[in-house]
Every structure is written in structure tokens, then in C-alpha cells.
Design a protein around this nucleic acid. Structure first.
Lengths: 206, 206
DNA sequence: ACCTGAACACCGTTCAAGT
DNA sequence: ACCTGAACACCGTTCAAGT
């Protein structure tokens, strides 16, 4: 007991351990987090203010890792490719922690990593000469679809389990469908293509 | 104490009271719910299995009210209008209970009202002659964007508060923008138009 | 500065006891 | 069948006490 010669905790360690618990169990508790870190629950409060800050930290970790992976910048020079790559990269990053997404929505975004991710998207449209209004709309539209698609990825396929009697159209379509890949991924690509094609009509020089 | 001559609770009353609490405070607790219903917390368990069932009931209430409002069926005969009306209606219904959305995502959909809502959307595409694959993709794409837009509606405008130094493109765009209406609504309409136009290229007879 | 153990108010859920 | 009060395990957070 007492203070150790070197700190055994840090914000980073706390956030990553919390994310691991969420990935495994879909949620985390302070006692559970303390146990995983081999520490007392009260110790955690020397490094973070409370549970909300940990949730924000989880978002930050996901964003940092996504930025470190560098996928946001691998696309070609065309703004269409870069915007599509942005949506694909961030949806993928969130999808790797699908169980965390329900925890993240509803809390305001304040961490630097996530803001940097959105700054990158805005910059794509600004560079292309979109007006301020169009930048705002383009970012919002792409973000909404990306997030909705990430949530769809998170929800089990059985969420669409309609009954043959009560939801015939829904039931038959899913029964008879034979998509050449995961439903969520294919739908995401269709939606991104649709949105980017339409955004192209907004900018005169496109 | 003891059993009253007539039941004072019902699933419906519990669900609606819980939704009221969520609308007001963004969450609900069993003790808080019991207090609002002028009842003991344990009484609630005679009508519902537990907290998850109440959350599902909240979704059901929102769906039922949306169906009762009838907006899903007011659109013209064209499938494009009907699909757009579907997305607009359901996003609006969810938006009226924005604080509830974070609670709903992450729980599987099983209630009849919500399934009926999605059945209606699937039927639009089936009637138009979409293949099973295209019905599945069309429903998924529109649902993802609708849900993402509803979440965007739920998050405060300040969620986009970027700093002038660290996120110049994002900051300037939001600073300089002068949209002719709420950002979320305008962006939603742009996205829906984009998606529906693109879905039109999937169906030969469109 | 950083960890611990004890303590607090609170939450979800159960159950025997009443009518 | 339906409501109550007591009880349980558990959770988030605080704080004095240690080094």
C-alpha cells in the first residue's frame, strides 16, 4: 500500500483496458476495470475524473489508432476518392470496436483525435473549393451515413429477423437474398457511392 | 397495501412514463420510474421482466405513435416519394425523442411496431420490382442514413465546436456557413435525395 | 503524487407477505 | 393477480490515511 515508486496507472492504460472490457463484454464497470488493472477502484480516480471521461477516452483511443493506421491518407488525389476513403476508414475503425459504439453515441465529441479526423474530412472539401455551406452539409451527410453504417455493422444480423407471416416483404427479401459479401459492407459501398456522386453536383468545378 | 381492486399499472403506462423520463433527463432508473408512477419499484416487476424490456417498450411506443400518425403512408404513388417519406417520417419520430436514441441503439429490434415500420419500407421496394438483393441493400442503406441522421439531430450543435487553431477547415466552414435552416434537416434531405437517386439506377424499370 | 480500504448513496432485482 | 417493504449484490464516487 501507499504510493509506488513508479506510477502503475495512466490515462492511456485506463482507456485501453476499458476498451478491452467493452470489446469483450459490451460494457465496463469501474470495479471490473480496476480488477483488470490489478488496482483498487479508487486508484482510477487519481488519473481520470470519472466514468464519462473514460468513455471519452475510449473514443480517443479508437481515433488515435485509426489515425496511426494512416488509412485516411492513402487515397488518390481526387476528392471523391479521398472522401470515400475517409468514410471507409472511420467506419472500419469503429467497426473493429462495434460494441463500443452504443456507448459513444450521446456523448459530445471533445477529444483531439476525433476532431482531427473530422478536420481531415472538412479539408478535403475545402481544398476542392466547396462553399462553407456545402462543406458543412457534405461533412454532415457523410458522417451521418458513416455512423449509421457502423451501427448497422454493430447490430447482429438477426436484428432483421422478420417473421414470414407478419413481415412478408422483409422476410422474403432476406430469405431470398444471396449477396456477394456481408450485407453491411455492400450496402455501405452503395450508399457512399450515392452520396459522393450527389455531392459532386454541388461543386461547379467538379 | 395489498392488491388494489383495479390494476394501477400496465406495460403501456410503464413504457410511456419511462419515455417521459428519458425525454426529460436523458435516462431513467427503476426507482425514478416507480416514483413517477406513484408505486413501489418492485411493483413494476409484475408487468415487465426488467430494464431491457422497458427499453424495448420505449422503442415500441415511439414506433406505435409514428404509425398512428400515419405519415408513412401519405406520400404519392412513386416509390421514390414513398421511400423518402418513410425516411423522413421515421427520422422525425425518433427525433422527437432524441435523448432516447442512444438508449435504443445496441438493443436488438423485436417489437411488432418497429418491424411493421421496416416491413412497410421493404414493401415499397418489392412492389417496384426490386430483386431480393436490391431490397436488402436498399433497406439497409436508407435505414443506416436515417438512423445516422437521427443521431446527428440528437447531438448538440456544439458537438462540432472545432477550434480555429487545431481544426481550421472545420472551424471556418461552420463559422462562415449560413444555411437556410437547421443543419441536420438540410443535410438529411441532401442525403436522402442522393441515396434515392442512386437506388433508381438499380431497378431496370425505373 | 499515487495507491489503499472504508464508507456513502444509489441502482436493479428478488421474494415473502399482504389483499 | 397485483402491490408493498425488506433485503441482496453491485455500482460510481469520495476521502482520510498511508508512502
Amino acid at each position: 500500500m501507499g504510493r509506488p515508486r513508479q506510477a502503475i496507472l495512466s490515462q492511456e492504460k485506463i482507456y485501453r483496458a476499458a476498451l478491452e472490457l467493452v470489446d469483450e463484454f459490451g460494457d465496463f464497470t469501474l470495479p471490473g476495470l480496476a480488477k483488470r488493472l490489478s488496482v483498487s477502484p479508487s486508484s482510477i480516480y487519481h488519473h481520470v475524473q470519472g466514468r464519462p471521461e473514460i468513455i471519452n477516452g475510449i473514443r480517443s483511443v479508437i481515433g488515435s489508432d485509426a489515425l496511426a493506421a494512416g488509412d485516411f491518407f492513402t487515397a488518390g488525389p481526387a476528392w471523391q476518392d479521398r472522401a470515400a476513403a475517409w468514410a471507409r476508414s472511420y467506419r472500419s475503425a469503429l467497426g473493429q470496436h462495434a460494441k463500443a459504439i452504443p456507448l459513444l453515441v450521446g456523448e459530445a465529441v471533445t477529444d483531439a483525435a476525433t476532431l482531427e479526423i473530422y478536420e481531415h474530412l472538412a479539408a478535403v472539401f475545402v481544398e476542392q473549393g466547396f462553399t462553407a455551406n456545402d462543406v458543412v452539409v457534405a461533412v454532415t451527410v457523410l458522417d451521418s451515413f458513416m455512423l449509421g453504417s457502423a451501427l448497422d455493422m454493430a447490430s447482429p444480423e438477426s436484428a432483421w429477423l422478420a417473421s414470414a407471416e407478419d413481415q412478408p416483404a422483409l422476410h422474403r427479401a432476406f430469405e431470398a437474398s444471396s449477396l456477394g459479401g456481408p450485407r453491411s459492407d455492400l450496402s455501405f459501398e452503395v450508399g457512399v457511392a450515392a452520396i459522393i456522386a450527389h455531392l459532386g453536383t454541388l461543386v461547379p468545378q467538379a
